[in-house]
Computed example of a mutant assay.
Amino acid sequence: MNYTLHQLQIFSKVVELKSVTKASEELFLSQPAVSMQLKKFQDQFSIPLTEVVGRQLYVTDFGREIAEAAEKILAEVEAINYKTLSQQGKLAGKLKIAIVSTAKYAMPYFLSGFMEKHPGVDLLMDVTNKAEVIKSLENNEVDFAMVSVLPEHLSLNKIELMQNKLFLVSSTNFSLQNKRITKTIFEKHPIIYREKGSATRAAMEKFLSSLNVPDKKKIELKSNEALKQALIAGLGISIMPLIGLKNELKDNELQIIPFKNLPIKTNWNLIWLQSKKLSPVASEYLKYIQSEKEKIIKDTFSWYEAYN
């Protein structure tokens, strides 16, 4: 046997994703490079590790056993690397964070300085909808989560990061000149929603319910980027977080429609379980956020404060 750590990493990722293409994307490698290393790894075993049926890749029982062993080996190597850095007086380990999809426009700015200061820290950040974020927090799969609406069924600690503002938005081709905007706008134009489980959708539905807007024609999309493109194309109107609209507003592709009782204002919060025993990395990150958040907001989000 003469396999390498690199081959173990590739095989583990292929098993996890059940796809050479997806594994190559996550590992930032070309598909041929992943396929070649996978073949070299397979050649060291007389029993197949994977098989392809149709166009679907399947992991054999033997392959799953090898994958479990590979994970243990990689975890030990990772632990050795962290211990080495710790002996050198450097902070080392993993920082695991789950964030709602709209928070991806803000959270990286609250991380970049910390990651630059501590190169021995590995960041694992999952970007998904609110329901999945809360699930990962509840299952103790992450250190922190970033949300705008706090789950009431969990005992949490929190740090408020910055304000979250939701505005009524449309394409700039939607003429507002000499128009008095009333709730009939929601009856005349298709409403574009995020998917169920999204905090943005929940806030939007609550607002529309307060206006007694009938549930007419609507479009449902699973990402903010898809929703923005639909708005730019003129497919309808929507209520969206301002945080993700900086470039589209600047480039005059989207516009904010003034409407009574908008924007909806909440706060982005960094949250963690009260019962969570924070790792040295997580504890250090909390100190960083507490000391640097105001400077980060001032330096990065000054444009944001112009919209009220």
Rank of each mutant, 00 (worst) to 15 (best):
P241A: 00
T184C: 00
D251W: 05
S170E: 00
L168A: 02
F186R: 13
N252T: 02
I256R: 04
I256K: 05
K228V: 09
T182F: 06
Q229G: 00
D251H: 07
M240C: 13
K228D: 11
G234F: 08
S175F: 07
I237T: 02
K217L: 13
V169T: 10
N212S: 10
R194Q: 15
T200M: 02
T184V: 09
S223H: 03
R180L: 05
E220T: 15
A203D: 11
G197W: 04
V169I: 13
N173L: 07
L254R: 04
N252Y: 08
K179F: 06
K216Q: 14
T184Q: 14
P190L: 09
S171G: 03
V213L: 01
K216E: 12
R194T: 11
Q229R: 09
I237P: 03
L254I: 10
K179Q: 06
I219C: 02
F167S: 05
A199S: 15
N212V: 00
S170K: 03
E205K: 15
D251K: 12
Q177D: 14
V169C: 08
F174L: 14
R194G: 12
G234V: 06
E187S: 09
S210F: 09
S175E: 10
E225Y: 11
F167T: 03
M240L: 15
F167Q: 04
Q255G: 05
N178Y: 09
S171C: 06
I181C: 11
E205T: 15
A233L: 10
I181E: 05
N178A: 07
K246Q: 12
V213M: 04
L168G: 07
K222N: 15
K228M: 14
